[in-house]
Design a protein around this nucleic acid. Structure first.
Lengths: 144, 144
DNA sequence: GGCGCAAATGCTACTATGTTGCAAAACCAC
DNA sequence: GTGGTTTTGCAACATAGTAGCATTTGCGCC
Protein backbone atom coordinates (compact mmCIF):
# COMPACT_ATOMS: atom_id res chain seq x y z
CA UNK A 1 0.00 0.00 0.00
CA UNK A 2 2.71 2.46 0.94
CA UNK A 3 4.54 3.68 -2.10
CA UNK A 4 8.23 4.25 -1.30
CA UNK A 5 8.20 7.27 -3.58
CA UNK A 6 5.41 8.80 -1.50
CA UNK A 7 6.29 8.25 2.16
CA UNK A 8 3.60 9.80 4.30
CA UNK A 9 4.59 12.04 7.21
CA UNK A 10 3.28 9.39 9.53
CA UNK A 11 5.59 6.76 8.08
CA UNK A 12 8.55 9.07 8.36
CA UNK A 13 7.80 9.78 12.00
CA UNK A 14 7.52 6.12 12.82
CA UNK A 15 10.67 5.21 10.96
CA UNK A 16 12.54 7.98 12.74
CA UNK A 17 11.83 6.24 16.04
CA UNK A 18 13.11 2.93 14.76
CA UNK A 19 9.66 1.40 14.72
CA UNK A 20 8.17 -0.90 12.17
CA UNK A 21 5.83 0.51 9.59
CA UNK A 22 2.54 -1.22 10.16
CA UNK A 23 -0.97 -0.54 8.96
CA UNK A 24 -2.21 0.33 12.42
CA UNK A 25 0.58 2.69 13.37
CA UNK A 26 0.44 4.62 10.14
CA UNK A 27 -3.33 4.87 10.28
CA UNK A 28 -3.39 5.94 13.91
CA UNK A 29 -0.69 8.51 13.41
CA UNK A 30 -2.47 9.79 10.31
CA UNK A 31 -5.61 10.31 12.32
CA UNK A 32 -3.68 12.07 15.06
CA UNK A 33 -1.87 14.31 12.61
CA UNK A 34 -5.07 15.22 10.85
CA UNK A 35 -6.83 16.13 14.09
CA UNK A 36 -6.16 19.53 15.54
CA UNK A 37 -7.41 18.44 18.91
CA UNK A 38 -6.86 15.59 21.30
CA UNK A 39 -8.76 12.41 20.66
CA UNK A 40 -9.94 9.57 22.83
CA UNK A 41 -9.32 5.94 22.08
CA UNK A 42 -12.89 5.65 20.98
CA UNK A 43 -12.62 8.50 18.50
CA UNK A 44 -9.43 7.13 17.03
CA UNK A 45 -10.94 3.69 16.83
CA UNK A 46 -13.96 5.03 14.99
CA UNK A 47 -11.75 6.90 12.55
CA UNK A 48 -9.83 3.72 11.87
CA UNK A 49 -13.01 1.77 11.33
CA UNK A 50 -14.21 4.34 8.81
CA UNK A 51 -11.04 3.83 6.84
CA UNK A 52 -11.71 0.14 6.83
CA UNK A 53 -8.60 -0.53 8.90
CA UNK A 54 -9.05 -3.70 10.83
CA UNK A 55 -7.89 -3.21 14.38
CA UNK A 56 -8.35 -4.39 17.90
CA UNK A 57 -9.05 -2.25 20.91
CA UNK A 58 -5.99 -3.59 22.67
CA UNK A 59 -3.79 -2.97 19.65
CA UNK A 60 -4.96 0.62 19.66
CA UNK A 61 -4.02 1.01 23.30
CA UNK A 62 -0.59 -0.46 22.69
CA UNK A 63 -0.02 1.57 19.56
CA UNK A 64 -0.90 4.77 21.37
CA UNK A 65 1.31 3.74 24.25
CA UNK A 66 4.19 3.15 21.86
CA UNK A 67 3.68 6.54 20.26
CA UNK A 68 3.72 8.22 23.65
CA UNK A 69 6.83 6.38 24.78
CA UNK A 70 8.64 7.45 21.65
CA UNK A 71 7.63 11.05 22.05
CA UNK A 72 5.52 11.12 18.92
CA UNK A 73 2.27 11.55 20.78
CA UNK A 74 1.35 12.70 24.24
CA UNK A 75 -1.45 11.66 26.52
CA UNK A 76 -3.35 13.57 29.12
CA UNK A 77 -6.06 12.87 31.62
CA UNK A 78 -9.36 14.47 30.89
CA UNK A 79 -12.14 15.36 33.29
CA UNK A 80 -13.78 12.02 32.74
CA UNK A 81 -11.86 8.82 33.04
CA UNK A 82 -10.98 8.70 29.35
CA UNK A 83 -7.45 9.53 28.38
CA UNK A 84 -6.92 11.70 25.39
CA UNK A 85 -4.13 11.63 22.87
CA UNK A 86 -2.66 14.13 20.48
CA UNK A 87 0.48 14.57 18.45
CA UNK A 88 3.29 15.79 20.61
CA UNK A 89 4.07 19.46 20.44
CA UNK A 90 7.56 20.52 19.50
CA UNK A 91 8.02 21.62 23.10
CA UNK A 92 6.80 18.69 25.15
CA UNK A 93 7.34 20.51 28.41
CA UNK A 94 5.07 23.18 29.68
CA UNK A 95 2.43 23.49 27.06
CA UNK A 96 -1.15 24.25 27.84
CA UNK A 97 -4.43 22.59 27.03
CA UNK A 98 -7.83 24.12 26.70
CA UNK A 99 -10.69 22.00 27.91
CA UNK A 100 -14.21 22.91 26.84
CA UNK A 101 -16.60 22.18 29.69
CA UNK A 102 -19.45 22.28 27.24
CA UNK A 103 -18.54 19.79 24.54
CA UNK A 104 -15.62 18.13 26.26
CA UNK A 105 -13.13 18.88 23.53
CA UNK A 106 -9.49 19.34 24.40
CA UNK A 107 -7.33 21.56 22.26
CA UNK A 108 -3.61 22.05 22.46
CA UNK A 109 -2.48 25.63 22.93
CA UNK A 110 1.13 25.35 21.92
CA UNK A 111 1.71 29.07 21.62
CA UNK A 112 1.19 29.64 25.31
CA UNK A 113 4.09 29.91 27.69
CA UNK A 114 2.61 29.88 31.17
CA UNK A 115 4.68 31.43 33.87
CA UNK A 116 5.31 28.39 35.98
CA UNK A 117 8.04 30.03 37.97
CA UNK A 118 6.10 29.28 41.08
CA UNK A 119 7.83 29.04 44.40
CA UNK A 120 7.34 25.49 45.50
CA UNK A 121 7.48 24.61 49.16
CA UNK A 122 10.79 23.12 50.23
CA UNK A 123 11.50 19.60 49.10
CA UNK A 124 9.31 19.53 46.06
CA UNK A 125 11.13 18.82 42.83
CA UNK A 126 9.38 20.15 39.75
CA UNK A 127 9.63 18.00 36.66
CA UNK A 128 7.02 19.43 34.36
CA UNK A 129 3.93 21.57 34.56
CA UNK A 130 0.60 21.01 32.96
CA UNK A 131 -1.72 23.93 32.59
CA UNK A 132 -5.32 23.14 31.81
CA UNK A 133 -7.67 25.97 31.02
CA UNK A 134 -11.35 25.34 31.44
CA UNK A 135 -14.08 27.28 29.72
CA UNK A 136 -16.07 27.38 26.52
CA UNK A 137 -14.65 26.88 23.05
CA UNK A 138 -15.61 29.23 20.22
CA UNK A 139 -18.30 26.86 18.98
CA UNK A 140 -19.95 26.41 22.35
CA UNK A 141 -19.43 30.00 23.43
CA UNK A 142 -21.63 31.28 20.63
CA UNK A 143 -24.63 29.36 21.87
CA UNK A 144 -24.37 30.80 25.37
CA UNK B 1 -24.81 11.33 68.02
CA UNK B 2 -24.32 14.95 67.13
CA UNK B 3 -24.61 17.17 70.14
CA UNK B 4 -26.17 20.52 69.14
CA UNK B 5 -23.83 22.25 71.56
CA UNK B 6 -20.86 20.71 69.76
CA UNK B 7 -21.57 20.97 66.03
CA UNK B 8 -18.57 19.74 64.10
CA UNK B 9 -17.19 21.89 61.27
CA UNK B 10 -18.36 19.25 58.86
CA UNK B 11 -21.94 19.46 60.10
CA UNK B 12 -21.89 23.22 59.87
CA UNK B 13 -20.64 23.08 56.29
CA UNK B 14 -23.33 20.64 55.28
CA UNK B 15 -26.09 22.56 57.01
CA UNK B 16 -24.93 25.76 55.33
CA UNK B 17 -25.67 24.16 51.98
CA UNK B 18 -29.16 23.14 53.01
CA UNK B 19 -28.27 19.49 53.09
CA UNK B 20 -29.30 16.86 55.53
CA UNK B 21 -26.91 15.85 58.26
CA UNK B 22 -26.25 12.20 57.65
CA UNK B 23 -23.65 9.81 58.95
CA UNK B 24 -22.03 9.42 55.57
CA UNK B 25 -21.79 13.08 54.70
CA UNK B 26 -20.36 14.09 58.04
CA UNK B 27 -17.86 11.25 58.00
CA UNK B 28 -16.77 11.90 54.42
CA UNK B 29 -16.39 15.60 55.02
CA UNK B 30 -14.47 14.91 58.22
CA UNK B 31 -12.04 12.75 56.29
CA UNK B 32 -11.65 15.38 53.62
CA UNK B 33 -11.11 18.14 56.15
CA UNK B 34 -8.53 16.10 58.01
CA UNK B 35 -6.59 15.25 54.87
CA UNK B 36 -4.16 17.82 53.58
CA UNK B 37 -4.08 16.16 50.20
CA UNK B 38 -6.57 14.99 47.64
CA UNK B 39 -8.02 11.54 48.12
CA UNK B 40 -9.45 8.96 45.80
CA UNK B 41 -12.76 7.27 46.32
CA UNK B 42 -10.90 4.22 47.47
CA UNK B 43 -8.91 6.10 50.09
CA UNK B 44 -11.99 7.82 51.45
CA UNK B 45 -13.84 4.54 51.50
CA UNK B 46 -11.06 2.91 53.48
CA UNK B 47 -11.03 5.78 55.95
CA UNK B 48 -14.75 5.39 56.45
CA UNK B 49 -14.41 1.68 56.94
CA UNK B 50 -11.78 2.22 59.62
CA UNK B 51 -14.21 4.45 61.49
CA UNK B 52 -16.76 1.67 61.34
CA UNK B 53 -19.04 3.78 59.17
CA UNK B 54 -21.20 1.56 57.06
CA UNK B 55 -21.28 2.78 53.54
CA UNK B 56 -21.69 1.72 49.97
CA UNK B 57 -19.40 2.52 47.08
CA UNK B 58 -22.26 4.11 45.21
CA UNK B 59 -23.28 6.21 48.20
CA UNK B 60 -19.74 7.47 48.40
CA UNK B 61 -19.81 8.51 44.76
CA UNK B 62 -23.08 10.31 45.23
CA UNK B 63 -21.98 11.96 48.47
CA UNK B 64 -18.81 13.24 46.86
CA UNK B 65 -20.82 14.43 43.89
CA UNK B 66 -23.13 16.32 46.17
CA UNK B 67 -20.23 17.94 47.97
CA UNK B 68 -18.73 19.04 44.68
CA UNK B 69 -22.01 20.42 43.40
CA UNK B 70 -22.42 22.46 46.54
CA UNK B 71 -18.93 23.83 46.35
CA UNK B 72 -17.76 22.17 49.54
CA UNK B 73 -15.34 19.87 47.76
CA UNK B 74 -13.65 19.92 44.41
CA UNK B 75 -12.69 17.09 42.15
CA UNK B 76 -9.87 16.77 39.71
CA UNK B 77 -8.70 14.23 37.19
CA UNK B 78 -5.48 12.49 38.02
CA UNK B 79 -3.01 10.87 35.68
CA UNK B 80 -4.73 7.56 36.03
CA UNK B 81 -8.42 7.22 35.51
CA UNK B 82 -9.25 7.75 39.17
CA UNK B 83 -10.72 11.04 40.21
CA UNK B 84 -9.44 12.69 43.33
CA UNK B 85 -11.30 14.84 45.79
CA UNK B 86 -10.34 17.47 48.31
CA UNK B 87 -11.99 20.22 50.32
CA UNK B 88 -12.52 23.28 48.22
CA UNK B 89 -9.97 25.97 48.75
CA UNK B 90 -11.13 29.40 49.84
CA UNK B 91 -10.25 30.56 46.33
CA UNK B 92 -11.80 27.95 44.10
CA UNK B 93 -10.41 29.57 41.01
CA UNK B 94 -6.85 29.24 39.92
CA UNK B 95 -5.20 27.16 42.55
CA UNK B 96 -2.50 24.68 41.80
CA UNK B 97 -1.96 21.04 42.51
CA UNK B 98 1.25 19.14 42.90
CA UNK B 99 1.25 15.62 41.58
CA UNK B 100 3.99 13.26 42.69
CA UNK B 101 4.89 10.98 39.82
CA UNK B 102 6.53 8.64 42.27
CA UNK B 103 3.89 7.88 44.87
CA UNK B 104 0.89 9.30 43.05
CA UNK B 105 -0.05 11.72 45.80
CA UNK B 106 -1.77 14.97 44.94
CA UNK B 107 -1.30 17.94 47.19
CA UNK B 108 -3.06 21.26 47.02
CA UNK B 109 -0.80 24.26 46.76
CA UNK B 110 -3.14 27.03 47.72
CA UNK B 111 -0.44 29.59 48.27
CA UNK B 112 0.48 29.64 44.63
CA UNK B 113 -0.93 32.21 42.30
CA UNK B 114 -0.03 31.10 38.80
CA UNK B 115 0.07 33.78 36.20
CA UNK B 116 -2.65 32.57 33.94
CA UNK B 117 -2.93 35.82 32.10
CA UNK B 118 -2.42 33.91 28.91
CA UNK B 119 -3.55 35.26 25.62
CA UNK B 120 -6.20 32.85 24.45
CA UNK B 121 -6.99 32.59 20.75
CA UNK B 122 -10.13 34.45 19.78
CA UNK B 123 -13.41 32.94 20.79
CA UNK B 124 -12.21 31.01 23.78
CA UNK B 125 -13.83 31.94 27.05
CA UNK B 126 -11.75 31.20 30.11
CA UNK B 127 -13.67 30.02 33.12
CA UNK B 128 -11.00 28.65 35.38
CA UNK B 129 -7.44 27.41 35.15
CA UNK B 130 -5.99 24.31 36.64
CA UNK B 131 -2.27 24.12 37.06
CA UNK B 132 -0.84 20.70 37.75
CA UNK B 133 2.81 20.45 38.63
CA UNK B 134 4.46 17.08 38.18
CA UNK B 135 7.56 15.94 39.99
CA UNK B 136 8.69 14.33 43.20
CA UNK B 137 7.34 15.14 46.63
CA UNK B 138 9.72 15.66 49.59
CA UNK B 139 9.32 12.05 50.71
CA UNK B 140 10.03 10.53 47.33
CA UNK B 141 12.69 13.06 46.40
CA UNK B 142 14.92 11.96 49.26
CA UNK B 143 15.13 8.45 47.94
CA UNK B 144 16.23 9.56 44.49
C1' DG C 1 -43.58 12.46 70.80
C1' DG C 2 -45.64 10.57 66.47
C1' DC C 3 -46.57 11.12 61.18
C1' DG C 4 -45.46 11.65 56.61
C1' DC C 5 -42.75 13.12 52.86
C1' DA C 6 -38.68 13.70 50.41
C1' DA C 7 -33.93 12.97 50.40
C1' DA C 8 -30.37 9.73 51.06
C1' DT C 9 -28.77 5.09 51.34
C1' DG C 10 -27.76 0.36 49.94
C1' DC C 11 -28.06 -3.28 46.80
C1' DT C 12 -27.61 -5.53 42.26
C1' DA C 13 -26.49 -5.23 37.86
C1' DC C 14 -24.42 -2.87 34.15
C1' DT C 15 -21.28 0.06 31.16
C1' DA C 16 -16.91 1.95 30.04
C1' DT C 17 -12.03 2.16 30.23
C1' DG C 18 -7.87 0.03 30.49
C1' DT C 19 -4.63 -4.27 31.27
C1' DT C 20 -2.46 -9.01 30.88
C1' DG C 21 -1.11 -13.38 28.65
C1' DC C 22 -0.47 -15.98 24.79
C1' DA C 23 -0.70 -17.76 20.09
C1' DA C 24 -0.85 -16.30 15.21
C1' DA C 25 0.49 -13.08 11.80
C1' DA C 26 3.22 -9.39 9.88
C1' DC C 27 7.47 -6.82 9.27
C1' DC C 28 12.23 -6.42 8.25
C1' DA C 29 16.99 -8.19 7.54
C1' DC C 30 19.51 -11.49 5.21
C1' DG D 1 12.27 -17.17 0.45
C1' DT D 2 13.76 -17.90 5.44
C1' DG D 3 14.40 -16.71 10.18
C1' DG D 4 13.90 -14.03 14.12
C1' DT D 5 11.63 -10.45 16.37
C1' DT D 6 7.97 -7.30 16.71
C1' DT D 7 3.23 -6.47 16.40
C1' DT D 8 -1.33 -7.87 16.19
C1' DG D 9 -5.63 -10.15 17.57
C1' DC D 10 -8.28 -12.64 20.75
C1' DA D 11 -10.18 -13.68 25.19
C1' DA D 12 -10.40 -12.97 29.77
C1' DC D 13 -9.70 -9.99 33.52
C1' DA D 14 -9.41 -5.64 36.51
C1' DT D 15 -10.90 -1.23 37.87
C1' DA D 16 -13.76 3.09 37.87
C1' DG D 17 -18.02 4.86 37.54
C1' DT D 18 -23.31 4.73 36.58
C1' DA D 19 -28.44 3.40 36.64
C1' DG D 20 -32.64 1.72 38.66
C1' DC D 21 -35.25 0.72 42.50
C1' DA D 22 -36.73 -0.67 47.10
C1' DT D 23 -35.71 0.57 51.87
C1' DT D 24 -34.17 3.53 55.37
C1' DT D 25 -33.53 7.91 57.56
C1' DG D 26 -33.44 12.87 58.46
C1' DC D 27 -36.39 16.56 59.26
C1' DG D 28 -40.45 19.50 59.10
C1' DC D 29 -44.98 19.45 60.84
C1' DC D 30 -48.86 18.29 63.69
Amino acid sequence: MSDPTHPSPAESLIAAQGGRITRTRVAVLDVLLAAEQSLTHDEIGSALAEQGIKHDRVTLYRTLDWLVENGVAHKMAGDDRARRFGVAASAPHEHAHFHCDCCGKVVCLEGLQPAVAVNLPGGYQLDRAELVLHGACPTCGKGT
